[in-house]
Amino acid sequence: MIRIESLQKSFQGSPVLRGVDFEIHDGETVVIIGQSGGGKSVLLKHLCGLLKPETGHVWVDDEDIVPLNERRLAPIRRKFGFLFQGAALFDSLTLFDNVAFPLREKRSLRETEVAQRVEEALEIVGLTGAGHKKPAELSGGMRKRAGLARAVVGTPKYLLYDEPTTGLDPIRADTINHLILRLRDRLRVTGVAVTHDMASAYKIADRIAMLHEGRIHAVGTPAEIQASPDPLVQQFIRGVADISQEVPSGNTTLH
């Protein structure tokens, strides 16, 4: 379980997180929604200690990771897989070596075992046979899938997805959504995704949390969020610039 307590973070004097309190339970997939530049990715990076807050705590399996230095954070971070927005594949390595990286860093596996697990991970994301390619030779969707393969190859307990479907066409985006669901069911991982793609959020989330002005503004299941009377939530999920200008419609469908 991950527990976030009174998390505050600012950059160059501008507060981004103003006291976030939230819990992520084992086995669930939580989607964090909110405006662009609202601190969603910042919050995600706090979960595995990539950023340090000014105040507050992040408990991962009952251990507060905020006071830990980089060396002591390393074993905690190995519980996580992280899909970065741009996939963040290492340019100098082939796709195979990228996916093999977290396994080779453990230094406890034989190369034949590494190769087998990499092939399995590539198969899960539908990239069998593409292991010899460099990241520059891959399309955006393939890079995202390769990033996902690298995130899951170490069989992490927690998977963090930063904008998993951004920049992809609807079909590719849906492929990623299916992959996330498949990973949750197959590997039983706890997932936290940051997105403003509501179609994706409804599809993959067990719970949706809305981050607004540096705080968690609303939390609920996809159905609860869709039915929420909160004007801010409605404005965001409908994607309207000014909710007061929207003509109410009883037949509005959100999918």
Binding site: L50, R78, F84, G86, A88, E105
Partner: peptide, 14 residues
């Protein structure tokens, strides 16, 4: 700037 350093750190590699 392409978050590859963050990716390294996220995998427990300094």
């Amino acid at each position: 700037v392409t978050e590859q350093l963050d990716a390294l750190r996220s995998m427990g590699t300094s």
